[in-house]
């Protein structure tokens, strides 16, 4: 015999009659309710961050500490990744250009790709993993161990001290790290070019920057600021709104990485469309 479909009987407030609803329908509705509640809570969180950013008593020392934590401690990772990106991109692009006898365009093509798209996006995705999860886990564990409550009862605004400083530090540091990634990427590309050729660094740079225009560089820098804000906001939101159990620390870190990475791609899509329209 076939299993009956699980249903729930609910009394309608409008008609006073009982209606039968499938359990699956209720589960889907609950999922949507949670999704929109989360979206609403995040909007309120972002509004509060903006409000606290422009309030008095800015926590400058903590902001500088966060800049150091995010910027300085991510630099080796970004430098290595950037250099490898440059080498790989150059090696992969060479055969296609060789077919058309355009190997001399290799530095310029790699420079444009790195500066316009690959540098900012790959750096932002790496930082979403590194600092997004770090913020989610740190604030999540502070929530679980009542440190955020302790801050609040000692008349310190945790939003101002913990969140605003981290979001601003990420907003400032991500573009700087993108510039570093681009620089190391170009250096990697020069190494890549010299694997099968002999081009001096000065000639490489003149060929690379001969192809790069202001419109390649400027929008990429602007979107990097947005990547930084998104990573900071998502990481802090997930940590700040974590549950009370230790399990929720892992959940906060994990969901911070997933959502921040997704939003980086979405912001990139919007930025590319806007740049295309403006140019």
């Amino acid at each position: 015999m076939k299993n009956p479909i699980p249903v729930i009987k609910i009394k309608s407030y409008a008609t006073g009659k009982s209606v039968i609803i499938r359990k699956k329908t209720i589960e889907k509705t609950l999922f949507l309710t949670e999704f929109f509640a989360d979206l609403g809570n995040m909007s309120i969180f972002v509004k509060d961050v903006f409000k606290e950013t422009f309030s008095r008593d800015f926590e400058f020392r903590e902001f500088l500490r966060q800049c150091y934590e995010i910027g300085n401690k991510s630099l080796p990772l970004i430098a290595i990744t950037g250099a490898i990106m440059g080498v790989v991109l150059t090696i992969q692009s060479r055969p296609a250009l060789e077919e058309f006898g355009a190997v001399t365009m290799l530095p310029g093509m790699v420079a444009v790709s790195l500066i316009r798209e690959i540098g900012p996006v790959i750096t932002a995705l790496i930082l979403a993993g590194k600092i997004g999860s770090g913020m989610g886990a740190e604030l999540g564990s502070m929530k679980v161990s009542e440190q955020i409550d302790a801050m609040e009862v000692s008349a310190t605004n945790p939003m101002r001290y913990l969140v605003v400083t981290r979001v601003l530090a990420a907003t400032l540091m991500v573009p700087i790290l993108v510039l570093f990634a681009d620089t190391f990427g170009l250096f990697g590309s020069w190494v890549g070019v010299n694997i099968k050729g002999d081009v001096s660094f000065v000639l490489f740079l003149s060929q690379a920057f001969g192809s790069v225009e202001f419109l390649d560089f400027f929008p990429a820098l602007i979107k990097s600021f947005f990547f930084g804000s998104v990573i900071g906001l998502v990481g802090c939101y997930k940590g700040f709104t974590a549950g009370r159990g230790t399990e929720s620390v892992g959940v906060a870190a994990n969901s911070a990485v997933v959502l921040a990475s997704l939003l980086v791609i979405v912001v990139d899509l919007i930025a590319v469309q806007l740049t295309d329209m403006l140019s």
Binding site: S141, M142, S145, E146, Q147, D149, A150, M151, V153
Partner: peptide, 10 residues
């Protein structure tokens, strides 16, 4: 306010 776990800033 003395919290149960101390709540010292790690």
């Amino acid at each position: 306010f003395l919290f149960q776990g101390g709540a010292l800033y790690d």
